[in-house]
Amino acid sequence: MKCIKDKELMDYFNDELNKTRKKEIAAHLDGCKKCREKFREWQAIFSLTKDYVEKDKEDMQIPDFNMSKLKTISDETAEDSSFSLMRYWIKPAIAVAAVVILSLTFLFFPAKKDNLPSNDNFLVLQDDFMETTVTQVDSINIAYLEEALLQEIYSDDELRKQVLSGEFRDYYDIIMDDMRYNELEDSDLELLEKELNKLKTS
């Protein structure tokens, strides 16, 4: 048997291997000094990490949580729903819009899914809560998105500075990373197909 790779030893300590493989590894360790040494090192690290985390968790004083507190605040903020909307929904929507403007030319349908039409008139968007929506790109939408992007830039001092100093690319990369187009789950793809069919028939 070949020497054991670090990755497999890590699987061993994370209990990700089946019984047969574990036995094979144990047998190999008996006869290989080099692997035994490596095993001992990993064992020490995993055991230290476990002890450290346990101690750390023990020391954490976690405040009590009760739902009733949540409900009261919820009722209070219900009257000021425009505030929470602005804070939690508009922002992600604008961030999405920013990407749309910047990426109108390369569309987001994963290439591997041949059954999805690669139609330039549709965009797949995902917000901060990983909700996926399909939007048809028409002149009204583009106008709205442009306005949203400008508002976003205008309302954020730091962002405006970044745009002026040419650092907008970083911001764009962060958003792109967040959106993770290429890793849509099957359930999202099903939803997309459904939405696309709806759009096509309407």
Partner: peptide, 10 residues
């Protein structure tokens, strides 16, 4: 928790 609670409908 508050955010999740308020957005349970979504």
């Amino acid at each position: 928790m508050q955010l999740a609670y308020e957005n349970l409908d979504s």
